[in-house]
């Protein structure tokens, strides 16, 4: 396993849509290096023939009847929207 470097922290922050300063990147890299170092412990286990667990209980797909149900009221849905107009969500201008 690899440890997280500062360059990787910057790359990962971008992928996760987090803006971080150079100073923060250094700080997070120190901490995440220590954390990923501690995770190395797992590599001493031989898991070649072990099945991964995604859920602890047996899961089956649950399908409901294909029948339309009423959705949420639009007024309600817009209740937490910062800015809206004519039933639509307003966002800042994002095209250059």
């Amino acid at each position: 396993m690899a440890k997280m470097t500062k360059e990787e922290v910057i790359e990962v922050a971008h992928l996760a849509r987090l803006a971080i300063t150079d100073e923060e990147a250094t700080h997070f890299a120190d901490q995440l290096e220590a954390i990923t170092n501690a995770m190395e412990l797992l590599s001493e286990l031989d898991t070649e023939n072990v099945e991964p667990t995604t859920h602890v209980l047996p899961m089956v797909n649950v399908l409901r009847e294909d029948k339309a149900e009423a959705g949420l009221d639009r007024e309600l849905v817009l209740k937490n929207v910062k800015e809206h107009e004519a039933g639509q969500i307003k966002v800042p201008t994002i095209l250059d």
Partner: peptide, 17 residues
Amino acid sequence: YYDAYYKKAQKVRTLIK
């Protein structure tokens, strides 16, 4: 890193269970 980290952890989860 998926196999080395996430999938590995899911496998160890099986051992813990």
